[in-house]
Structure formats: structure tokens, C-alpha cells
Design a protein around this nucleic acid. Structure first.
Lengths: 212, 212
DNA sequence: TTCCTCAGTTAGAAAAAACTAACTTTATTT
DNA sequence: AAATAAAGTTAGTTTTTTCTAACTGAGGAA
């Protein structure tokens, strides 16, 4: 159920956030009600409002948390001295790690809130994806000018393709009853993407960066 | 907004279905309420229940329609004398047409209900995807034994990839503010899929089946 | 000790949602 | 012409949801 690890010892505010995320991801927004959250924690619904101003406030904090985690990891990769290919690898790899740790929460949250007309949520998520697209896109462009990435491909389009492929993986995972990992074999997954974009003479070369 | 084409002339039941799909895709299930649907049609919420037993009934019919159209076209393709490639093309093409007409409602509903424990919708959606996977998978296998499709690929995996790519397209469409079509250029989209699975000597050949 | 704050409680107000019942209008059938 | 059916209406009922108010008990600070 919830990402357990001394869950009981956590402060209530924290528990509310985790249970809420779990409900939204695994049961949908319609089940995300004060009553349902409180019930899981063995408290009353009124107690929720001692910790959060409103239900939307909870959502806001969940999005903030998950999204910032993904962004941070992409920023770190950007700063290193490594080669384009290694940096790209690192971004993809961390992205998959976060995805796995959060059980697909971010794609699900994106899917839910990108649709709402609630500008508050829409903006922050859209911004997140745009910045991701920009970072990966820039990296691809850099790779193209260095000659390691195929000239023909569209940088932003490829960044979006990657997001789309992750989305597809999450979909398959949900369909399969949320068993096991979302991306079975990350190395294979990444190498398939690389196969499509790297210049041919590079494609059989192993990527030597270690995961994490 | 709604898929317009003499929208005004449509019978109310039809209008309810279309407005509902539009709300579910663009505003989320939480906004899918009798009041909201009725308001858009300039009628009262009570009138909705002259046409549908319940709100769930509306969702049910949206799914039913999409699913049965996709399945029917796959069945029809199966019976024809056409080549594997042509039959595959026909299935993909109808799927994209239905997707476009319903503005992506079913992929969205899949994403929503495959997560929930709402067994009612879960079953029908899961069954749809499974049968789709089976049909496309079989077709690919047939193509492999005829030598027109690459031996190396996994038939069911590829069928799932197609569903996943549709899912990703819907995601991108939502992200992009729901403007225009979900799949900009269906021919291009299909040919990209074919590029990945067809034996190389076939890949530049044009598919001659006309859309629709 | 006394006071204060925190994190709960119960009780309930206000709004929204899903329907239902009973009535009206209009068109169609008999 | 009379009866019927379809598709609306208004005016509820019931349930659910969010959130507030007023109270309680426990622990720490003055």
C-alpha cells in the first residue's frame, strides 16, 4: 500500500500526504476525500483540516514534492562534466528510479491534473514537463553538434517521445495490476532509445555509467 | 469544444454522450456531474435521467461504443482477403478514427478505471485491451511466418506498444492544451510503427489502403 | 500550579450530487 | 378526438463532501 518504512512513526501531516498520494494514484481522484484519507489513518475527517487548509492544499503539496524530485535529478545531471551520452543516460536512469520509487505517481498525477481547468495545478505540471523537454532537448542538440547523435531527429520531439514511452510503461503496469516493476529492464529500455537516436558507429558501445 | 458537426441537430441522448466524453477528457471525472452535463446542453439535470438510468450508465455507453467499433473493425479486417500489412493498417486506421471522434475519451477512461477497484469498468476495459492485443498479436505472428514482419519482435509486446503510443499521443494532446487532432498525421504515425516492425525490403513501399 | 498550544474529538452547517415523483407540453398513434 | 409516449420541467429527498466551531485531554513553559 503506502510506501512503508516506519510509517507509524511519521508525523500525521506526513501520513496524510502519503495516504493521499496513494489514494489518488491507486484509486483515482474521486476517492480522494477527507473521509477516505482519515479512515485509513484511524482519525476523523475534521482532523485533516488541522494540518491542511483545504483538500486542494494537500494536492498542491503532493505535486510539489514529486515534481521537484524529478526536476532536481535532471538538474544534477546537467551540471556534471560527463559526456552528452552519459548525461543523457543519467537523466533517463534517475527518472526511471524516481518512477519506480514513487510507483508511477508523477505520470499519474500529470495525467489527472493536466486535464483539470484548475490553473493552479496545470501550470506547475506543464512547467515541469516543459523544462524537462527543454533539458533533454538541449542535450540532444549538443550531441548532434558533437556528432554523436543523429542529425535527422527532432530534439524536443524525441524528449516528448521519451515521456510518452514512460507513460506507456506506466499504462502497461496499471493494466497488469501494478505487479512488479514499471520498467522491467531499464538498461534495455534506455538502450532501445539510444539505438534510435545515436549515430550508428556508436550504437554497440556500452554505456559505462553505473545506475544511481 | 465538443466534436461539432451539426451538433445542435443531434438527438439529446447523443449530445449527452458527447458532452460527457468531452467533460471527462478535458475536466476530469470529478467534474462529470449531471449538473455540469445538463448545463452545457441548456437543460436541467433531471432531464439526463430520462435518457440514462444513472451517471455510470453514460460512462458505460461511451466505453461500449468505442470498444465495439474498434473490435468490429478488427474482426472485419480479420475476415478480408487482404495482406497482413493491409489488415494491420486497417485496424490501426480505424482505431485512430474512433480515437479522434471521441476526443481520446477511452484512453483517458482506461487510465482512470484501470487504477480504481471499480470492477464494473475495469473488467470491460481490460478485456478490450486483451482481445485487441490478441488480434494484433496474431496478425503480427502471421506476418512473421510470411516473412513480411521482422522475426525478432514480440507480437504481443508490439501490440501493447501500439496501445501505449496511442496513450502517449493522448497525453501529449492534453499537455498541449487539447488543440487540434490527437494524432496529427495518422499516415506518418502508422508508417513509423511499420518502419519498426516490417522487414527492411518492404519498408519504403507505400500502403495503398485508403483511410476509412 | 496555571496557562497555552497541539492534535484530536463531536456536532453540525452549507453546498453539491444523484436520483425520484409528479406535473406539463408537444407530437404521434389509434 | 382521445390516448399515449417522449422529453422536458419543478421541487423535492437522501447522501456525501468540505469545512467550521466549540470542546477535550495531554504535555510543556512560565
Amino acid at each position: 500500500m503506502v510506501n512503508v518504512k516506519n510509517f507509524e512513526q511519521l508525523p500525521t501531516k506526513e501520513k496524510i500526504l502519503r495516504v493521499s498520494a496513494d489514494i489518488i494514484v491507486n484509486e483515482g481522484l474521486r476517492k480522494f476525500t477527507a473521509r477516505n484519507v482519515a479512515e485509513r489513518l484511524g482519525i476523523t475527517d475534521a482532523a485533516i483540516f488541522k494540518h491542511f487548509k483545504s483538500m486542494d492544499d494537500i494536492i498542491f503539496e503532493i505535486i510539489e514534492r514529486y515534481v521537484s524530485r524529478c526536476s532536481r535529478s535532471a538538474d544534477e545531471a546537467e551540471k556534471t562534466e560527463k559526456s552528452v551520452k552519459e548525461r543523457l543516460y543519467q537523466i533517463l536512469r534517475t527518472h526511471i528510479n524516481v518512477l519506480e520509487e514513487t510507483k508511477g505517481a508523477v505520470p499519474v498525477l500529470c495525467f489527472e491534473f493536466l486535464r483539470s481547468d484548475d490553473k493552479k495545478f496545470y501550470r506547475i505540471l506543464k512547467e515541469f514537463i516543459e523544462s524537462y523537454k527543454r533539458k533533454v532537448g538541449d542535450l540532444i542538440r549538443e550531441g548532434q553538434s558533437e556528432g554523436v547523435i543523429k542529425k535527422g531527429i527532432d530534439p524536443e520531439g524525441t524528449a516528448m517521445l521519451f515521456i510518452g514511452l514512460i507513460q506507456a510503461k506506466v499504462f502497461a503496469y496499471l493494466l497488469d495490476g501494478k505487479k512488479g516493476k514499471i520498467v522491467d529492464d531499464p538498461e534495455q529500455f534506455i538502450s532501445e532509445i539510444f539505438y534510435g537516436i545515436l549515430e550508428k558507429d556508436d550504437r554497440d558501445e556500452e554505456v559505462e555509467v553505473k545506475s544511481r
